[in-house]
Nucleic acid binder design. Structure first.
Lengths: 237, 237
DNA sequence: TCAATCGTTATTATATGATAATTACAAGGG
DNA sequence: CCCTTGTAATTATCATATAATAACGATTGA
């Protein structure tokens, strides 16, 4: 049923995504400069040994994320960096694959500090009954894992907890952070504290405040969590 | 072959974007339910009277924004709402076109309150010399327009000002907000105060703090701006 | 009866080639 | 000098064919 032999890493994706990934790498790394015109479709088709269909779908994908822009007669131009949508999980994944991750992690932390306390506050106000149940169940697991510590399991529950906070805000614009956060967590396994003891306390404070509907407490608790200096830098893979 | 009479408004965009927009409308409005399988490619091709190429590019575009997911034999499924990337300018544009804008505006304001003060603080710390020049020039215009008030011009400079703040953070994850903000501003012309007098004061405070490199002042000034109750609700168009 | 295996088939994925639309650029006319 | 117009390069769209995928039912063997 499941063939264990063809488990090539990451090549399960469709062809146009593989091509897009490769072009994205060149753009994100600066190998291809901003505002530069990339080679024409036919040339790229030969370079990647794919059909025009696959290549064009790749270009369309990158266009959608703000990396490229195509015009007849002109060609396909790399857009300037301020148009790249870094709040897109797939693009973020490509960025992480570049390997310059310590800096990305710092930038992301700066974003979390702005957005997560507010998200916690909104969640305290707006979480539905079902979302509170999910959050409760997740915190139970979190509590358990913190006592029987396992790095991989902790990443999983920690990710799920913060993800649920974003989903519980009831605000459309906070939703995308859930996926972005998941992408970051999965990439930086060792992001959290080694001694889960201190972290679980902060998480409990957030959890309790949300369940109690206390927005201000939730906000402050989340601020404290992100202020703790035990956010380790990612191990460069 | 192309009928010039069916020049739908704003149909200058390419065909696959028009198709994507129409499918997106159905998804965002709930006309097509989440997790539902949409009709097969051939059926949709007939519905929209476009080739498979155009239709597939439309589907790929929506897939990229988290609205759809395709699998052979299964079909194309509408993904659940938490996967929709509302922090994508194009998707946001489609959302705005639905017309339920007062709520969207409130949600966006809640996001701005979280993110913009921090962005101002970061800009105060990290803005480059060139960015300070741009910011300075923009505030000059802002000051002028506030004295010779014109709604459209004010929207333009106001948008540009806040856009520059995001670009000046030096943080990749803050960049996308610039485009999202622009999309919102362009849609809600009458978002700002009628009496520009009070607003210009807050803007000046933000501007001065950033130029002085005072992160804390910039943050607080931006908070004050967003706390003012003169953010009018958008006129439903 | 049940479980595993194996075709069948519907659907998307990819390839290929042809035609249309767009527009930068150069050439020509006023 | 400006405006128009023609040319050519590039992407946009169309049409058709073949391959890959995986759900589903049929078959088989115990």
């Amino acid at each position: 049923m499941h063939n264990p032999f063809i488990q090539i890493s990451g090549s399960k994706r469709s062809l146009h995504v593989q091509v897009a990934r490769e072009i994205a790498r060149k753009i994100l790394s600066g190998e291809v400069a901003q505002n530069e015109i990339i080679p024409s479709e036919m040339v790229l088709c030969e370079q990647f040994s794919v059909s025009r269909t696959a290549l064009r779908e790749a270009i369309k994908l990158l266009t959608s994320k703000g990396l490229l822009e195509s015009k007849p007669k002109v060609g396909t131009r790399v857009k300037s960096r301020d148009n790249w949508n870094f709040l897109d999980a797939q693009l973020l994944d490509w960025v992480i694959d570049l390997g310059d991750n310590a800096f990305v992690y710092q930038e992301f932390l700066a974003l979390r500090k702005a957005i997560e306390p507010e998200a916690a506050a909104l969640a305290a106000q707006n979480a539905t009954a079902q979302q509170r149940i999910l959050l409760s169940a997740t915190f139970q697991q979190m509590d358990y894992v913190s006592k029987n510590f396992d790095a991989a399991q902790w990443m999983e529950v920690d990710m799920e907890f913060h993800r649920l906070v974003f989903l519980s805000t009831g605000n459309s614009f906070y939703l995308p952070f859930a996926n972005v956060l998941c992408t970051m967590f999965k990439s930086f396994i060792s992001h959290s504290s080694e001694k889960g003891g201190t972290c679980i306390g902060e998480h409990r404070a957030i959890y309790s405040a949300i369940m109690a509907g206390d927005a201000e407490k939730a906000r402050e608790a989340n601020k404290r969590l992100l202020s703790t200096t035990n956010h380790r830098l990612p191990t460069s893979n």
